[in-house]
Structures are given as structure tokens and as C-alpha cells.
């Protein structure tokens, strides 16, 4: 008992000292993630420091399965309530969809005609101006969506094993959902468009006006860096511009909402329904000339190393082909 008491007295003094020190350490960490560019995740920056497998996703890889199981009932409830709501206005929805379908069949006909025309021009000019949007997609399930007060992200159940890489665009059935910021073997983290650190280059297909869509941690991101003469109108459809060279151009994002003289919000098309399955678009980002040449140097060095080490046994070296010069 005396030993416990002595330990207790010691603990009474040590506890506040250790506690205080730990608070200071944690506070320093907090200061390091303060504002500025520290936490800002533009798709370009994400892709720039993209590693095939982020080591920080190791824990996420391990918790992904229990988390997926735990979220199942919640996703079920979410879906059930959503479907119940949809059922209540099924007739109005049906009429609206029929009207939309007749509009779209006309649009589809025009799009097919235009595609044929473009293909013909491409053949004539020997140029390939095909769509940026990749045809191949990776399906993934949103295991947990963190719509917290400080960050908005989601965890997917696909990682490097399915070909997911940092910077890849993630789409719901309707529109852009976010982009990949960390990848593990079996999991990946998506930074949602609403997150305060999200920066996406967008444009209006109508006027081709450009802007940067910045997350605000609320359901409505805002448009910043808008040129003075840019032609933005309330209700303009917003798509990705692909200007950062990482996301493909033309992915639907939402609709612009004028909120004041110089304030422009974005009503995201991916919001409003439960997100369960998503598509990851494996778009290969355009590399800067520096990165490109660096990769070329590495490839050259590898080839040189192989040559220095000699030819592996069993491999026939082709005889030197004499040139015209001798």
C-alpha cells in the first residue's frame, strides 16, 4: 500500500508535466497544419508527389474490411430512406424523365453526327483530338464518408491492386465526387470537392470561362480566380477544364449559383443522394518536361547498368548490323 501511495504521489506531479508536454507537442503539430499551402490538395500537387503506394494508408488497409462491415447497416438505412422518398414522387419523376429522354434522343443523334464529322476531320488533318475521358473505369465502393466539420473525405475499397493512383478522378453516377489523395494496396482516400483543401480547375462549356473551384467544408464550394471579363452566368453548367493537366476535361461537376456581385457558389451534382458505388477514372496525367526527362534519365541509367552487368546467360546478342558507312 505504501508503494502504491508513493507511486501515487509521484504520479500526481509527473502527470501534469507529461500531460502539458504532450499538449505542447500536439499544439505544434496543429500549428504546422495551419492555413497556407500545407494541407491544400490541388489535383496537380497530389499527382506530383504521387507514390505507387502511400505508406500512410497501411492502417486504412487493415481497417477497411471491419469498417465496410460496420457501415453496411447505415448504408442500408440511408438507401432505404432515399428510395422511400423517390417512391413518393415516382409519377412526377417518370413524366420528367420521359420529357428528358425525348430531348436526349435528339441530342444523341446530333452528338453521333458530330462525332462522325470530327473523326473525318481528324483523318483529314492526321490529328488525334480524342476525348480525354478514359473509356476504362475502376469500380469502387465508398466504405466510409467522413463529412466532418474539419475535413471531407471518403475511403474506397480499391487501391493499387485495382490500378488506382494518386490524382485519379472519382465519379458518382451523376458527377465528379473528388480525387484520390492517398492510395494503399486495398484502399484509397478520396478528397471530396467540398473539402477546404480541394482545388479543381473548372470551366463553363457555354462560354469557356475558367475558374478554380475551392472547397469550403460546406455543401457549396465557391469559384475563385475568375478573370474580370469571364462570362459566368447564374445556372451555368460547370465541368472540369483539365487545365492542371491531371484531371480529364469535361467531367460534370455541378451548376454555378450567383451569390452576390463577386460571389459564385457551386451546387454540386454529386450531392443529394447516398453515394455507394463510384467510378475511378484512371487518367494518366500529363507530365512536365522536367519529370519526363527525369524518367528518361532513369530509364537510360537502368539500360546502362544492365549493359555494364553483362548479358544474362541464355540471351543471344544479335550480331552488329553493318551500316553503309562500314
Amino acid at each position: 500500500m505504501l508503494g502504491d501511495s508513493q507511486q501515487g504521489n509521484r504520479g500526481r506531479f509527473v502527470f501534469p508535466i507529461i500531460g502539458g508536454l504532450l499538449v505542447i507537442i500536439a499544439f505544434l503539430f496543429l500549428l504546422s497544419s495551419r492555413g497556407g499551402d500545407n494541407g491544400v490538395e490541388t489535383v496537380a500537387s497530389t499527382a506530383a508527389h504521387s507514390a505507387p503506394k502511400s505508406p500512410s494508408m497501411g492502417i486504412a488497409d487493415k481497417i477497411i474490411v471491419p469498417l465496410a462491415v460496420m457501415t453496411m447497416p447505415f448504408r442500408g438505412v440511408e438507401k432505404m430512406i432515399g428510395e422511400g422518398r423517390a417512391r413518393s414522387d415516382v409519377y412526377a419523376e417518370n413524366a420528367r424523365l420521359k420529357a428528358r429522354l425525348s430531348q436526349l434522343s435528339d441530342a444523341e443523334m446530333r452528338a453521333n453526327a458530330l462525332a462522325m464529322k470530327i473523326k473525318r476531320f481528324e483523318t483529314l488533318l492526321s490529328a488525334d483530338v480524342g476525348l480525354d475521358i478514359p473509356a476504362q473505369k475502376i469500380a469502387g465502393r465508398v466504405v466510409s464518408e467522413n463529412n466532418g466539420p474539419f475535413a471531407r473525405s471518403a475511403l474506397l475499397n480499391v487501391g493499387t491492386n485495382a490500378g488506382v493512383r494518386n490524382g485519379h478522378a472519382v465519379m458518382t453516377e451523376q458527377a465528379l465526387y473528388g480525387h484520390i489523395v492517398a492510395v494503399g494496396k486495398r484502399s484509397s482516400r478520396v478528397l471530396l470537392l467540398e473539402d477546404i483543401n480541394s482545388r479543381i480547375a473548372v470551366m463553363s462549356p457555354r462560354s469557356e470561362a475558367r475558374a478554380i473551384m475551392v472547397g469550403t467544408n460546406t455543401v457549396e464550394p465557391k469559384l475563385l480566380f475568375v478573370a474580370r471579363d469571364a462570362d459566368w452566368k447564374d445556372g451555368d453548367v460547370i465541368v472540369t477544364s483539365g487545365d492542371e493537366g491531371v484531371l480529364p476535361r469535361g467531367l460534370p461537376v455541378g451548376v454555378m449559383k450567383q451569390r452576390g456581385a463577386d460571389k459564385r457558389g457551386v451546387v454540386l451534382s454529386s450531392l443529394g443522394q447516398a453515394v455507394d458505388w463510384v467510378w475511378v477514372y484512371p487518367f494518366e496525367p500529363i507530365q512536365t518536361p522536367e519529370q519526363d526527362s527525369a524518367q528518361q534519365d532513369i530509364a537510360d541509367k537502368d539500360t546502362a547498368d544492365e549493359n555494364e552487368m553483362g548479358t544474362p546467360s541464355g540471351v543471344e546478342v544479335p550480331a552488329a548490323v553493318p551500316t553503309e558507312d562500314g
Binding site: G39, S56, A151, S153, R189
Partner: peptide, 12 residues
């Protein structure tokens, strides 16, 4: 780490 929030917020 799990919530992808600012580092240090929850420990503080």
C-alpha cells in the same frame, strides 16, 4: 488520421 482532419486537432 482516420478523419483526414488537421493533424493535432484531436490530441490537443
Amino acid at each position: 488520421y482516420l478523419s483526414y482532419g488537421p493533424t493535432g486537432l484531436w490530441p490537443v
